[in-house]
Design a protein around this nucleic acid. Sequence first.
RNA 1: GCCCGCUUGGUGGAAUGGUAGACACAACAGACUUAAAAUCUGUCGAUCGAAAGGUCGUGCCAGUUCGAGUCUGGCAGCGGGCACCA
Length: 864
Amino acid sequence: MRSSAELAITVQKSSIIAMDTRYNFRENEEKWQKAWDQHAIYETKENKPKYYVLEMLPYPSGRLHMGHVRNYTIGDVIARYKHACGYSVLHPMGWDAFGLPAENAAIKNNVHPKTWTLENIQHMKQEIKSLGISYDWKREIATCSPEYYGQEQKIFLDFLKAGIAYRKESFVNWDPIEGSVLANEQVIDGKGWRSGALIEQRKLSQWFFKITDFAPELLDDLAHLGNWPVQVKTMQKNWIGRSTGVRIRFSFLENEEGLETFSTQPGTLFGATFLGISPDHPFVEKLATSLPALQTFMAECRARGTSQKDIDTAEKKGFNTGLTLQHPFLKDKVLPLYVANFVLMDYGTGVIFGCPAHDERDYEFAEKYKLPILPVVEGPEEVSLPYEGEGTLINSDFLDGLSVKEANEEVIRRLVEKKIGVRETNYKLRDWGVSRQRYWGCPIPIIHCPICGIVPVPENQLPVKLPDDVSFDQPGNPLDNHPTWKHVNCPKCGEAAVRETDTFDTFVDSSWYFIRYCAPNFPQPIDKEKSEFWLPVDQYIGGIEHAILHLLYARFFTKALAKCGYWTISEPFKNLLTQGMVCHETYRDEAGAWVYPHEIEKRDGQFFKITDGTPIKVGRSEKMSKSKSNAIPANKMVEEYGADTLRLFMLSDSPPERDIEWTDAGIEGSWRYLNKVWRLVSSHVSMIKAIKLADVPLEFTDNAIELRKCTHKTIFHVSEDIERFHLNRYIARLREFTNAIEDFSPREPSELWALHEALHALVLLMAPAVPHLAETLWAALGHEMFVYEASWPKPDPDLLREESIKLAIQVNGKLRGTIEISPDLSEENVKNLVLDLPFVKAQVQDKIVKKFIYIPGRIANVVL
RNA sequence: GCCCGCUUGGUGGAAUGGUAGACACAACAGACUUAAAAUCUGUCGAUCGAAAGGUCGUGCCAGUUCGAGUCUGGCAGCGGGCACCA
């Protein structure tokens, strides 16, 4: 507990504010941040009902950008509000500290990734602290610290035991000039971003997590995430992509062997005119050994990046194997087998039957290779091919006349009967490849022994630490090139062996950090008791760009950890808010180069470069980014306007889930509003201080009642707005309320009391958004405790009631006027009243009133 | 290419299927000031009208409804994601 004497001194000091004409944010923000720290008010307590507010942990790029500020401000409003409502709040912050940019910086600027990262963290932490967010820094996590990643290695070993982690071959982007693996981001138009070399797909043996085992759960549990945005759930649903169909075996004419296809539209089987097989199919690899032309074709298919976009937008290419397969139902029909680059090995069986008349991709392919196109579904009206809609089967033997759905069922029934088909459920979701051929990541705790094979590092030897003495002078992974680090003795047989030199995908780090916050120093990865107290996260807030991958991986981890016996939680995030981006106009100089906003000036409505006065072309508003030079540095804004102004601006104008446009005018407006509130409160302090809120007057004047109604309505609406994340409306209501108080001039004691009540409420209500100013004004009003510790105000229901309401009157759905009525009037009374109105009579004239619609409190509609 | 969104005044936005434009920003006019800044007051979707008031208006086209910014179908433009950026 803090001593009240100590605080009283602070209060004394801050009451001098009335002397100045402008709010001194520099002095006050620094003072309160220090005081909060000293009294450790943001340290997590566990004595009340819990509420876990979480913002996505940032990558320590070095600078705090506006997207971060927006994210943390939204979170802070919720955290402070929930705290005021009487919850024990967990509100932590940390660093997603592994990843590519550190290595890029190492190569470009010859700085060690660790040094670069730790310095960035230092710097960004100061910037975040200057925002006055209510974080419990005692729980801070950096994923690059051995304390964190060592526990992650432990989790991996558990996954390995549980059969969730396994090894298989898969493709990477190989840059033949650099001699290293590239991220999709580093492949531009099929070429390496640094070398410009044509990228080829290369097969490597890598570690995978069996997320597909959890596909049904990940899909079905979406239904329980009631407070997730629907579009996020839809995206995840489509990503997991459950589909039911049939696996059909086709036999070769030439020999006994066959190939299995998967189809979700087996009803179109009679329209099949070819079979397509993936170039990565084992059968093709076998076939290619004796077919040099096929080898060339396969190499062609692999001369591109691994991203889905590259695959989908690549030109459709095929190779006729010359082999033919028998149609399952038509004795006389044979289908040629093409190796086709659009058939994916990862989905289904890697073989399809092509029905060009009713599939877009098959159609394109058939056109190109002059394959027959046979329609088997007739649409309700004349349709152009390919036609993928509903219809009736034709040219299809025993399926003729059936609907597509019936045909699917019937053909499956017959295939199963003939024992050449099995009903099958498939998922688009693929297993999660977690191996990265990079240095700056969590080492995978595995030893490869020539005798024992794959041997897990014993738990008591964890963490497997990253060596610091690495060089980026050679191509490839520095861990792989390290002279000593990877050479160890096998823990099993003691013979010479090598460490796994791949590190984890950084998505692994961010898949469980929110669990670690619950007990950041626990000697095991997860403290069951603490995490089951705090989890699931009550409110998760972050960018919409994470809608699929990060959120799906974190959900998977939660379920996988449950399978390993860590706990019984099945979903990590109860509520999710996906915030929009912060955008800004873009500027280019005459040469077309991007120019920063601070490098330009405005004269007569035109923009010019400050340095040389050349004109600037203004482009459309885009997401703030380094590459477009349109980012406004957060720290500069904090210096110029203070944290509260910046926070206020981030909350005003746009609702959280929408993009927000950065404007200088907007930040100015927020600054003006803060000063207005500061002047309003400070100018009344001496007048109302004598009036104690505890001494409620027995009677109020009409004036006082009017203000009190406004106060309590504002309390009601603000609470509702925050609960619903209508944070821009929350700010709008504060402004409205402020305007109402400004217009109020008290003339007698009950009015002074009402004014005191209003100002008291205003400060409490604004505290989650602008905590520094709120503390300053709270102290000025004579309080000795922090406003952070004050309870959220409750509206008086008596003051929320309306004696008369405005009712809109429509005739035939068109607004004709409004009337004031008592809300208790019966429909019959309202009807008589409305039909008697002159402006209604003028419309009705001698027509008959067909219908009278009355929605109490909303509208009355006379239908003629 | 595939999946998911978004589109309302000069601008950001508000509106449980029920008075479109709350609250702001910008602009303009005025007050205060020697002046400027700051602050305060007023006007502010388009159009017709002296006014009262009318008509039109939420990206485009159609539909459902007594009533559509809101629901349904189609189209356009812009954005997010696409499995190795985080």
